[in-house]
């Protein structure tokens, strides 16, 4: 990746993700407006706001997966750990291994549990350079990390799509780990799960804090409050407020934020 734009800056970047004047269009529809954001490294940041305000769009800009949608346009910059992700020498594959994503609906591939977990790893390491025992270690480590190992260790050849939704979502987190991502983007990772599943996955996300920089989109105020250290509030494609979670929920600075938190936007 290209070096950070300010070459004079010597200290390691404190921000995991930094956007400057980020604008984003789907065709002629502008979904993000002048987004300036610094996501602090090493913590969980939650992203809240009413439906359609651009949370997913912002998240999907960070691993550039929204370029799949075809007719889209971006202006401004996004830096991940100090590197401009739109730089000319950026490889999309590398970027997406560094910036893992968990989707709203669990989306394991229709292959075995083992192959799901090792999918990213195998993309990165061509067949002849793989070490069997090392692979087994990585597989076990990743599944242990998401508290899935004991449940599936005897059926690693089973199709991943046959697991329960909660297990599927955990698997979708596990399969990001073998390529050692720095950032995890999670787009409402619990919204398809039942209350127990939600609790289990939330707990897991909390466990992962510290090892990864986590950006978590949620519709659920209680979840944002429980599960994050900082909070970003968005409205109609703009960032309205970014503050420590406790502060935002107790003393929001912007009246629009307090309206939303108190449930006036629905």
């Amino acid at each position: 990746m290209t070096p950070p734009s300010e070459a004079t800056e010597q200290t390691p970047p404190a921000a995991a993700i930094r956007t400057r004047k980020l604008n984003f269009w789907y065709g002629s529809f502008q979904a993000l407006f002048e987004v300036d954001l610094e996501i602090t490294a090493g913590i969980i940041t939650s992203l809240i706001g009413p439906s359609g305000c651009g949370k997913s769009t912002l998240l999907r800009s960070v691993n550039r997966i929204n370029e799949r949608s075809g007719d889209v346009r971006t202006t401004g910059t996004i830096e991940v750990l100090g590197h401009d992700i739109h730089g000319e020498r950026v490889e999309l594959a590398r970027l997406r291994q560094k910036v893992g994503m968990v989707f709203q609906r669990p989306n394991p591939l229709p292959i075995s549990i083992r192959d799901n977990v090792m999918f990213g790893y195998r993309l990165q390491n061509p067949a002849n350079s793989r070490n069997k025992s090392e692979q087994e270690e990585i597989l076990e480590g990743s599944l242990r990390k998401v508290l899935l190992w004991d449940g599936v260790k005897d059926c690693l050849g089973r199709k991943a799509t046959s697991l329960s939704l909660e297990e599927q979502q955990k698997l979708c987190i596990a399969r990001l780990l073998p390529v050692k991502p720095a950032i995890l983007l999670m787009d409402e990772p619990c919204s398809a799960l039942d209350p127990q599943g939600t609790e289990a996955v939330e707990e897991l996300i909390w466990e992962l804090r510290g090892d990864f920089n986590i950006l978590l989109v949620t519709h659920n105020m209680a979840q944002a409050r429980r599960a994050s250290e900082e909070c970003v509030f968005m409205l109609m494609g703009r960032v309205i407020e970014h503050a420590p979670t406790v502060e935002m929920f107790v003393t929001p600075r912007n009246p629009q934020t307090s309206d939303y938190i108190e449930g006036r936007y629905g």
Partner: peptide, 20 residues
Amino acid sequence: TYREAAEAMGATRWQVTYKV
């Protein structure tokens, strides 16, 4: 969603096609 999942893990268009 399968294609999106695979691409989000860093698969190229071609890898998505033959692996997924």
